[in-house]
Design a binder for these strands. Structure first.
Lengths: 213, 213
DNA sequence: CGTCATTTGGATGTATACAAGTATATCTCA
DNA sequence: TGAGATATACTTGTATACATCCAAATGACG
């Protein structure tokens, strides 16, 4: 792919986002730029950039007293699944209509990886391949608007996806569902791709909400 | 409501976002931090913050040679309406279920304003009241996830909304539709609110896509 | 002892200085 | 005249210094 510059600010953003979304910080905790910069050994500038981006995503809230951790609630999870149920099928449909050969090849690669990690029961790697499959599907839909809409929603539930995929049964079923979705995309069957993806989301939702709530 | 700090960075962000979304800059044009800071009479720092936020929304793309303007295409518009058709009804439904008296009072106020500007044929103010009505509806749905998903989509088509609302016929119809949606919310009729909002989006889409494309 | 003014510490917001990379222009030399 | 190496003029990325605001601790005074 292309070799994107990975600035310190980017690294700080990803680290903070991950830490907040997996619950490493308590809700309403105040993060100050200076403490974060000392803790991470960089100046305030990249910290500021990262915090502003997190604020834009409403994962934190910037106040005169510091950046207050918001994180994500179980209500958010429910809402996110409801939203994804309504639009993620679009991604599958459009991917079936517009995916390039490269898109499909990339998804195949990721699914081979996912198969491997499923047999090995590696929840962390499974979570990563799961993320990449969905993101590749968004990209294959060739719609910036849809990508920008779905990617943030998907990233926010990373903590719950990881927990869900640590169950061997769900991990195997999720893999099978991904395979079927990709096959529908390869067959250029938009209706089937959309239907399968909706089912996939429903299953993931039931698994996660049934487990965590 | 709350007295939010309006920093220079915020102002720069809003000004740049508006200018880009209304087409004041050519696609692929390179904006440099220094030139923008000189033009606006502020230092690079707030400019940088604004550019990073615009980059996060994929309205520009930050490169080593400057910030390249991406803006929005007619394909984006089509996709955005397709997405809104699928989820904005949720906002209406949830607003009907959860709106507080204050939410409803605010929406009423905005609609009174919209009525006034409709008779006065003021497209700029109409665009603003239209924005505020939809944003209040998102807020009334009491779902952060839905608000964060819909607000960016709605903001991106500001240019087209303004053009659309400069037609007296569409302006009056849009006002009537807003009234009906609010009434459904007041009646706590989620089904009706969702149905009316879908129709509202369809009408807006047909008006905008029929006019511009 | 209580209350009010003052101070002080720490936070973000802004400006500026410095580092590093890159593409282009220029200068030199054959 | 042409080609290659050097210099230059941009850019963004990062660090730091300074301004400003606010709240809580502190101290003076009735």
């Amino acid at each position: 792919m292309e070799h994107k510059m990975v600035s310190i600010a980017d690294q700080v953003f990803e680290e903070l986002e991950r830490d907040i979304l997996v619950g490493a910080y308590a809700r309403d905790e105040l993060l100050t730029e200076i403490k974060l910069s000392e803790k991470m050994g960089v100046s305030r500038t990249p910290i500021r950039e990262a915090l502003r981006r997190l604020d834009q995503e409403h994962i934190i809230e910037i106040t005169p007293k510091g950046a207050r951790v918001i994180g994500i609630t179980s209500d958010d999870i429910r809402d996110i699944f409801e939203i994804r149920l309504r639009i993620e099928g679009l991604a599958a449909r459009w991917a079936a209509e517009k995916a390039t050969d490269e898109d499909i090849a990339s998804m195949k690669e990721v699914l081979d990886l996912q198969e491997f990690y499923t047999t090995k029961s590696s929840p962390e790697q499974l979570k990563n391949t799961d993320s990449r499959f969905h993101e590749l599907l968004y990209a294959a839909s060739n719609s910036n608007a849809l990508l920008d809409t779905l990617a943030p929603l998907h990233r926010r539930i990373v903590k719950y996806r990881r927990a869900s995929l640590s169950g061997q049964q769900r991990a195997e079923k999720s893999y099978d569902e991904h395979r079927a979705i990709l096959q529908a995309v390869i067959n250029r069957d938009g209706d089937e791709a959309e239907r399968l993806l909706r089912r996939h989301i429903e299953n993931a939702r039931d698994n996660i909400l049934g487990r965590e709530l």
